[in-house]
């Protein structure tokens, strides 16, 4: 296995540097190009040969285009989406606000406490899901099994209960606890019929043991939208809703978010 020397890596880096890429992408592509060159050299090419062949398919312009594409898909698009949501929210608040028609000095008074910047930040920040997945039912009141280590009622083993169980009759409507996009809707082993919603800021909510789902993968949902009905599918002892909140893939206690 051939490994490029520091000097050789520097020559590849010099090519990338001409494209003026950001550091993260430049580092990533450096590794990629070096791997490609090493693979060519393994087949018998000299370093110079492998370098020029590899760089042929990576002209400077293409490198710049790549960075533009990445920036567009990961930054501009979501920013446009968020900006339009923020504008809609501000417009809504202005319309409903009692201050707008009564006294224009009132909202200005807030500025004295220097809250203005906090408010601006709040519009773009995503609040963690705090609503109850069953409309009109308090999560604490309907709780039959909480979050955390517990002895599993079926397997009798002590494991982490990744969500909370809420008592409910079969067919009770289940609602989305925050706006987001459905990333899974269907049968999922022990979880039974499951709906998973991806929210902003790395939050995912999961609704399990359902009797049916009324949204499909790819659907956008709003807070309070009906997505499914309570059931007892999968590994379940009776009708209930198993509700999970994940933050960056780690289960968190949904009740802790409410407090």
């Amino acid at each position: 296995m051939i490994i490029l020397s520091e000097h050789q890596v520097a020559r590849v880096q010099a090519h990338l540097a001409r494209a003026g890429l950001n550091e993260q992408l430049s580092t990533e592509l450096l590794d990629h190009l070096c791997c490609a060159i090493e693979a060519r050299m393994t087949t018998g090419e000299s370093f110079d040969q492998a370098l020029s062949e590899t760089l042929k398919s990576w002209p400077i312009r293409q490198l710049r285009d790549l960075q533009k594409t990445i920036n567009f898909t990961t930054k501009t698009k979501p920013m446009l989406y968020r900006a339009s949501a923020a504008i809609a929210l501000v417009a809504g608040i202005c319309l409903l606000s009692p201050f707008t028609s009564v006294d224009h000095s009132a909202p200005l008074a807030l500025d004295h406490h220097d809250h203005s910047s906090d408010y601006a930040a709040d519009y773009s920040r995503f609040d963690p899901p705090t609503a109850s997945p069953i409309a009109g039912v308090d999560m604490k009141a309907a709780l039959s099994s909480g979050f955390g280590m517990r002895k599993h009622p079926l397997t009798k083993r002590t494991t982490l209960h990744r969500g909370i169980d809420l008592k409910a009759k079969v067919g009770t409507p289940v609602q989305a606890t925050a706006p987001g996009k459905v990333i899974y809707a269907g049968e999922d082993g022990n979880y039974g019929i499951t709906v998973r919603i991806l929210h902003e800021d790395g939050y995912v909510t999961a609704y399990c043991h359902l009797s049916k789902h009324v949204v499909e993968r790819g659907d956008r949902v709003i807070l309070g939208q009906e997505i499914a009905a309570v059931g007892t599918t999968g590994q379940s002892l009776g009708p209930h809703l198993h509700y999970e909140v994940l933050k960056d893939d780690v289960p968190v206690n949904p009740l802790a978010l409410v407090d």
């Binding site: 592509l29 594409t69 990445i70 898909t73 990961t74 979501p78 991806l198 790395g202 893939d249």
Partner: peptide, 12 residues
């Protein structure tokens, strides 16, 4: 790479 960066951004 654009796809990978997008999937990271989306939490996948």
């Amino acid at each position: 790479y654009p796809l990978l960066h997008k999937l990271v951004k989306d939490g996948l």
